[in-house]
Write a protein that binds this DNA or RNA. Structure first.
Lengths: 339, 339
DNA sequence: TTGTAGGCGTTATCAG
DNA sequence: CTGATAACGCCTACAA
């Protein structure tokens, strides 16, 4: 049982394929009567154009690729949501691939998508990424390309980011204004730009308020997981019992921190105040409720697709395109953990 | 800058396209020397076959479609993870679409994927789905198709499920064995089979242990969200202060239930014991830690793809394929909320 | 061992 | 207004 084709319609109607094609695509130069006949028959036979043929002919597939570190992640799944929603609005489908935070896999995924000839690629770097040849390859091939959140600064592409440094500054400042005198920081891995920026924001805030910066108060996550929050909570409270505030790279880790304190009867916020990052759903559900930095993840997805679309359209119309960077706003959400 | 094609290779080497094609595909009937030349040039020019042309020719795209209610959801994002991982292993890419729990959207998404001519479709029904014409259409067109978790029982397709009734029975039984005498149930919406089955499992457990079933103790979620957990916690504790156990359709709602109790100083598990469903990550992070039913979501994704692959392969080889149903095991995880 | 020819289904050009 | 013809790039009988 084959799908209906233009040819079939043309044959049953005794006209040419060309005319059928034109009739269905609303070309002005088809008589009303032929058009009507064609449209009716097409409807009856449930005709839909063969995408494979259309792709080949038009050299585009109305499909984009998305590469992220992992799907099972509050932030990324929200971004995915935004991208899919916006893509769909504009007639595009989205293929999702994961890098599992591995640079090797990330490269392979880029390769995949290039071979697949997607119309564009959106990517957020893995934590391991410290090499950008695969990304340069995308640019070199002229594939529309957008980076978001974890980006390679030096690559000349569109970007959607937040101001991590500023947000981290504000988070730390928030703790200071709440009266914290000795503030620790649990930071992300060494590579990712946003871990670096958040660390810098933390440091700057201390400087501004004349609090001495102490490297011993900075703890570095490797995997950025719940368990590390527990472990570092233990280390911090034991090694520096006078620490009265902590700014933590992300809510997941902060929740681990809180869990440890709860178990060990260390009062939050009385003894130690905590602020996380991302406004993960969970942060308003845990006891005490976690103060955090709200990061517009859904919107980030939407904007990423919008930029990609602009570039895809520019390319189609052979117009020049100049990469843009969109910086989205963040805001401090005060909850119980820093009251 | 155009991509390299077979034609280009053929021309520069002064041989026919056919030979080039054969050389690259390891046909036995090409001389070693020509083959070497072709392969080398192809490598040098960075040749990759044009997927669009291959798709058209072979009538397959090595791409499957996945429709789920929502991406931002612990359970589904884990399933996605499983499907993507398994698909990739087998050379397939995955397009993801959301129904946002709307039957209308679900139909549109199916339509999308059919038009796109994906090689197969994996779907989990939206809560609203009470009509299966769109699903019948998939089957009618002969597209390989697998349902998981929220399924249409009557459709003759492969399925990957858990035994919701049994799991719910065990969850309720767990509460009974912990000494609960009056157990409420917060159930899911009316349509989805698994909400029905979990309700039936709850009822059966009561029967087995001679606890009278009381309709007033059954509360029905509409949206299955955190807020409903809060609301029903309020209703249950006020309307039936002697309820000493609750079995809740899913962890997200259970967490809302716990949040309300925490705020209102209702002791869990002393005053009332709680068990959820899904083993959502946050259930082991909240205070008190939530007892729940572990549901193998990643594996569900893997198995779903495996079944789809079997069917896609059978179809390619023109062999008959008989839909299979895989039932995955669940297990009770006892944590603090039911101690 | 190599090449010719036809076709997958659509779109675009250009002549009638 | 209509249609013949030629791509798009690849695959595969079949012929040489």
């Amino acid at each position: 049982m084959r799908e209906t084709t233009l040819k079939q319609i043309a044959e049953t109607l005794g006209i040419s394929i060309t005319t059928v094609s034109k009739a269905l695509k609303n070309y002005p130069d088809v008589s009303a009567s032929t058009k009507k006949a064609v449209v009716e028959l097409a409807e009856k036979l449930n005709y839909t154009p063969n995408t494979f043929a259309v792709n080949l002919r038009t050299r585009e597939s109305k499909t984009i690729g998305l590469i992220i570190p992992e799907v099972v992640h509050h932030f990324f799944s929200n971004v995915i949501n935004g991208i899919i929603a916006e893509a769909e609005k504009n007639g595009y489908l989205v293929i999702i691939l994961q890098s599992n935070e591995s640079i090797e896999l990330e490269k392979k995924q880029v390769e995949h998508l290039l071979n697949k000839r997607v119309d564009g690629i959106i990517l957020s770097l893995s934590n391991e990424s410290n090499d950008d040849n695969h990304i340069k390859e995308i640019i070199k091939r002229g594939i529309p390309f957008v980076q978001f959140d974890k980006i390679a600064k030096l690559i000349n592409s569109s970007k959607v980011i937040i101001n991590d440094q500023k947000a981290a500054f504000e988070a730390t400042e928030h703790l200071i204004k709440k009266g914290c005198k000795k503030i620790a920081h649990i930071r992300g891995p060494v590579n990712p730009q946003n871990a670096i920026d958040r660390f810098l924001g933390y440091k700057k805030a201390l400087e501004k308020y004349n609090i001495p910066f102490d490297y011993n108060l900075v703890y570095t996550c490797k995997d950025v997981v719940f368990e590390e929050g527990i472990e570092f909570a233990k280390q911090i409270t034991q090694q520096h019992p006078d620490v009265d505030g902590v700014f933590i790279i992300t809510d997941l880790v902060a929740v681990g921190f809180i869990a440890y304190c709860n178990e060990n009867n260390i009062k939050i916020p009385e003894k130690i105040k905590v602020i996380g990052f991302s406004n993960w759903f969970m942060s308003k559900v845990i006891t005490p409720k976690l103060s955090t930095v709200d990061q517009p993840s859904f919107e980030m997805g939407v904007k990423s697709f919008d930029l990609l679309l602009e570039e895809m359209n520019a390319r189609k119309e052979q117009k020049p395109f100049y990469p843009k960077t969109i910086e989205l706003g963040t805001s401090i959400i005060e909850r119980e953990s820093s009251k």
